[in-house]
Simulated assay, not measured.
Amino acid sequence: MDPDSVREGERVPHGGETDRDVLDFSANTNPRTPDGVEAVYADALEASRRYPDDDYPEFRTAAGEFGGCDPERVIPTPGGLAAIRLAMEVTLEPGDEALVPYPSFGEYAREVRLQGASPQFVPHDEVPGTTDGALEDCALAIVCTPNNPTGEATDPAALADFAARCEAAGTTLLVDEAFLGFTDLPSAARLEAEGVIVARSLTKLFGLPGLRAGFAVATGEQRVALETARRAWSLGTPAARVGAHCLQRDEFVRDTRERVASERERMRAALESRFDVAPSDAPYLLCDVGEDDVDDVIAAAREDGVAIRDARTFRGLESHVRVAVKDRAANDRLLAALEVGGALEAPDAAESDDSSGGRETGRRG
Score class of each variant (00 low, 15 high):
154 T>R: 10
11 R>M: 13
7 R>L: 15
94 P>V: 05
299 A>D: 14
210 G>H: 11
137 D>Q: 14
174 L>S: 08
354 D>M: 08
351 E>K: 11
14 H>I: 14
123 P>I: 12
190 R>H: 09
85 R>A: 12
351 E>L: 12
184 D>M: 08
178 A>D: 12
70 D>S: 00
185 L>H: 06
97 E>A: 12
243 G>T: 06
309 R>H: 13
214 G>W: 00
284 Y>G: 07
42 A>C: 10
120 Q>D: 15
90 V>F: 08
309 R>G: 11
244 A>Y: 02
26 S>M: 04
136 E>S: 15
28 N>Q: 14
95 G>R: 00
24 D>Y: 00
217 V>I: 14
80 G>K: 00
145 T>A: 09
158 A>T: 14
188 A>P: 02
161 D>Q: 12
3 P>W: 11
90 V>C: 09
247 L>T: 03
330 A>I: 00
158 A>L: 15
119 P>M: 08
337 A>P: 01
71 P>H: 03
341 G>H: 05
97 E>P: 06
227 E>K: 10
151 G>Y: 04
195 G>P: 05
154 T>C: 15
32 R>G: 07
303 E>H: 08
213 A>P: 00
322 R>V: 14
273 S>Y: 06
281 D>G: 01
227 E>L: 13
356 S>Q: 13
63 A>E: 01
317 L>G: 00
147 N>P: 01
230 R>A: 08
305 G>T: 05
308 I>A: 02
218 A>S: 10
149 P>E: 07
177 E>K: 04
332 D>P: 06
56 Y>C: 04
285 L>N: 02
214 G>M: 00
104 S>G: 08
172 T>A: 10
3 P>I: 10
223 R>V: 10
336 A>M: 10
64 G>E: 02
178 A>R: 08
357 G>N: 04
78 P>Q: 10
151 G>R: 02
213 A>N: 05
287 C>S: 04
141 A>Y: 02
282 A>H: 05
255 D>R: 15
327 D>M: 05
33 T>K: 11
46 E>L: 14
82 A>I: 10
24 D>R: 01
264 R>L: 07
43 D>V: 12
140 L>G: 01
60 R>L: 06
159 L>W: 00
